[in-house]
Structures are given as structure tokens and as C-alpha cells.
Amino acid sequence: MSALHAVWRRNISETLAGALPIVLALGIWYVISAWNFAPASLLPSPVTVFRRFLVLLGDPQFLQNAGATLYRLFVGFGIAVMLGIGIGILAAGNRTVAALMQPVIRVLAPVPKIALYPALVLMFGFDHSSKIALVVADALFPILLATYQGAVAVDPKLVWSARAAGASQTRCLFTIVLTAALPSILTGARIGLIIACIVVFLAEMILSTDGLGQLLVRAARNFQTVDMFVPIIAISMLGLLLNAAFNMLSKRLLVGFPSQN
């Protein structure tokens, strides 16, 4: 009973410790703006910012921009997932594909994909496609690498068991290997999702006519500080929400797998 009590107390104190820096940061922000240490044109009060955020959530124009961002994010992420898993599994199942793929990935993976963006705009124009292409380029590699590494690490005896039961090699690759690699694939996909979220916003900031990122740039140009904070908070909260949703989905998909940390 007392042991349980101690665990409880530790959990509570750890939660409090975790909340402390966040509360502290918000508190300092509030104090700075409330006591006029910084002019509102440089740092608006958190209350103003959150109130503006709530107002904008009901604003059709803001929602339209957010919708454009979401559309690019999900289409790009979806393509990256399909390409990444497909190529990764093929490379794991075929040595020639792997030998061809590995050096290309070693060269391309560390390249800052954002640098491709001007070229993508030249090729695909200012609208959705150039941003989607950039999201694909950026989210593809973590998914592809995680799939390949996960698939290569699958215990061959799992495959042998299926092969002996009568499954063909190709069938094994797409049922047994793919499923057994799922924990790794989902980890890669989660990283890819957050990257997609970030990069679509950045692309919209660099060259775009709409989207959340563009709202931030527009606000900066007009020195509307409050409206600069709102898109950043929106995209960060979107990232947090997607991350949480993805974790929930992973937990459901990974029933039966040994739990990961």
C-alpha cells in the first residue's frame, strides 16, 4: 500500500515538474507583456494571441488557408508513405534493387530538400503541386529508410515458417515481412508526418499565395505581430495533434507486438 502510494507521489511530482517549465514560460511571457517590459508590437500578450487564435478559428478565410495547408500535407504525406513503403520493401526483397538504391539514398538523404523548392516551383508552378512535391521529397526518406531497415531486420525464420506453410516468396514479402516490419515503418512514418507538417509550412513561407505559412509572412510584412504568432501556434498544435493521433493509431495497429519503450 505504501509502495503504491510512493509511486503515486512520484508520478504526481513528475507531472508537476513537467508542467513547471511550460507554466513558467507562459508566465514570463505574460508578465513581460502585461507589465510593458516589451511593447505589444514586439511581443503581444499571450491572452491576446490565444483570443485572436480562437477568433480566427471561426474565420472562413483563415480556415481556407488552413485547408490548403492540410490538403498539401496529407496528399504529400500519402504519396511519401506509398513510395517509401513500396521502394523500401522492394529493396529488402531484392538485392539488386538494394544495391542500386543504397548509394543513391546516401547521396540524397542528407541533402536539404528545401533547396529543391525553387526548382520545384519552376517545374510545378506556385500552386499545390510544388508544395506537395517538396513534402514528398522530405517525408520520403525517413519512411523509406525505416521500412528498409525494419524489413531487413525481420527474423528470417518468420519468413521460412510462412514459406514452408506454402506462401510464395512475393506473398511473404508483402504479408509477412511488411507486417513484421510494421513497428519500424510506423516510427518512420510518424517522423515523416511531423517533417511533412513542418516543411509544408516553410514552403508556404518561402513562395506561396496561400496557406498558413503565407499568413505568417503576410502578417510579418504588415507588422501585425499577433497574426504572426497565430499561424505558428496553429501549425505546432496541428503537429502535436497529428503526432498524438498517429500514436493512437500505431497502438491499435501494433496489437500483439512487444511494446516499444
Partner: peptide, 10 residues
Amino acid sequence: FQEFALFPWK
């Protein structure tokens, strides 16, 4: 097999 090699998701 010694390692059982059961499908963990089934």
C-alpha cells in the same frame, strides 16, 4: 524453430 518464430500480430 528454437525461437518459435510465431507471427506476433496474429
